[in-house]
Design a protein around this nucleic acid. Structure first.
Lengths: 232, 232
DNA sequence: TGACGCACTTGACATCCGTCAAGAGGACTT
DNA sequence: AAGTCCTCTTGACGGATGTCAAGTGCGTCA
């Protein structure tokens, strides 16, 4: 783990909120490993023995329904932690995790965390902050699915990816479109069509590059209740 | 607060996990109050100053989209706590809360909680457990919306309400159908129709009483991927 | 260079669900 | 007992999204 990794770790809600020496103790001799694309980190129902920090790449969390369909619950990237709350949830992961892009992850044993918390209770406060952060993300996701159309959900997704808030920009999609679709609660075909519907709003897509003429236009589109465009 | 209330408080994931004397200290001189149906407890964006324990009645948490639509994020009943994680989330509630049935609530100041946590770090562990519980509930809700049809979602809702796992039973719906619909991410009309579709599966509805001939049949229906019934 | 695989797009069609509208049935008031 | 309000139900319709299927374009590999 080099200084750059350390910087990433410190940028997470979990490790950023705790004193430096405590963070050092926690991740001291934990392992950084490279995981190939497609690796299953854990399955829902497995005993929750450790949690992760993403140093590079992307990881998806999902649930499998009895008939085999998968519902993506979250996609995590550099600077995010996941599964840390599961450590306290009856010891079982409520979701499955899979690496979707060859990734470097820092893995931290739950037992270590629990032990440290007893010695250094402030860690628990950091964990609460982190947990609250995830709660909020989930709440926002539910709101999104329930009240936005497919094109609006993608527009929102693009806006969050956008480094600027006005004017235009070009961004690269972080991972496969099929996964984006899953994350947004729709099928790949719908994603295609929805992106096509955004064309009149100044969105053009070329492979994984998306260019946006006017971000503010998108923002207003997401906030509009009438779901069609008029006069085009 | 009478012994019965105390028993309810101790049944929550949050207060059940901590030593009795600590729990007593926390809720010692906090107020139990009766709130009329329709009371707004807080709005999303408000400073998060306190959290609640439901002693009686029902409370809904929801988010308002820019255009005024509401997305129900959770409905809480006796023996559940809510908004406790918000205390740690930058001091703002990410959702709004409204009493949907005249209710008795125990309100606990966030400041008190924070102070006690510093003195008694085990509380933080209880809060983590509680927070994880809510995380899991949200994850399950997302899975539900993404992968189940409207009739399947209601079936699941009924199963969770059911005291038994096999045979039949009759249950009373806990609150208005319109709210149930919101909780399940659909419109009241769709709820009606979905309930009608469950009739061939042994569900009959009379006002707020729902009788189920065979719970197991429902369970299997939820776990089925083909969404129509065959041969009826 | 050509064949294959994979991700994505596009089209046609079916279905689910939301919307708008009307109507049924209680509960409460007068 | 009639009137009114409210919740819930039912019907008709349209739009959005899933499904199935075919087609395109790029990358890989021989």
């Amino acid at each position: 783990m080099d200084p750059h990794d350390w910087h990433i770790v410190r940028s997470t809600p979990l490790f950023g909120a705790m004193p430096q020496d405590v963070a050092l103790l926690l991740i001291g001799n934990q392992t950084v490993r490279i995981y190939e694309k497609g690796t299953a980190l854990f399955q829902q129902g497995d005993p929750a023995e450790s949690f992760f920090v993403v140093l590079d790449g992307w990881v998806k969390l999902f649930r499998l329904t009895p008939d085999g369909t998968e519902a993506v619950v979250g996609v995590f990237r550099r600077g995010e932690t996941f599964a840390e709350a599961a450590i306290f949830l009856g010891g079982r992961y409520p979701v499955s995790a899979e690496v979707v892009t060859t990734a470097r992850l820092l893995r931290i044993e739950g037992e270590v965390l629990r032990r440290r918390i007893r010695e250094q209770p402030d860690i628990a406060l950091s964990m609460l902050a982190s947990s609250s952060y995830h709660l909020k993300a989930l709440v926002e996701q539910i709101e999104q699915i329930k009240s936005l159309s497919a094109p609006q959900r993608i527009a929102d997704f693009l806006i969050r990816l956008c480094p600027v808030r006005e004017g235009g920009c070009t961004i690269g999609l972080p991972y496969e479109k099929a996964l984006i679709a899953g994350r947004l609660g729709m099928k790949p075909e719908s994603l295609s069509r929805a992106l096509a519907k955004l064309r009149p709003l100044g969105i053009s897509v070329d492979r994984e590059q998306v260019s946006i003429v006017d971000v503010d236009l998108l923002v207003r589109f997401v906030e509009t209740s009438d779901r069609g465009e008029e006069g085009f």
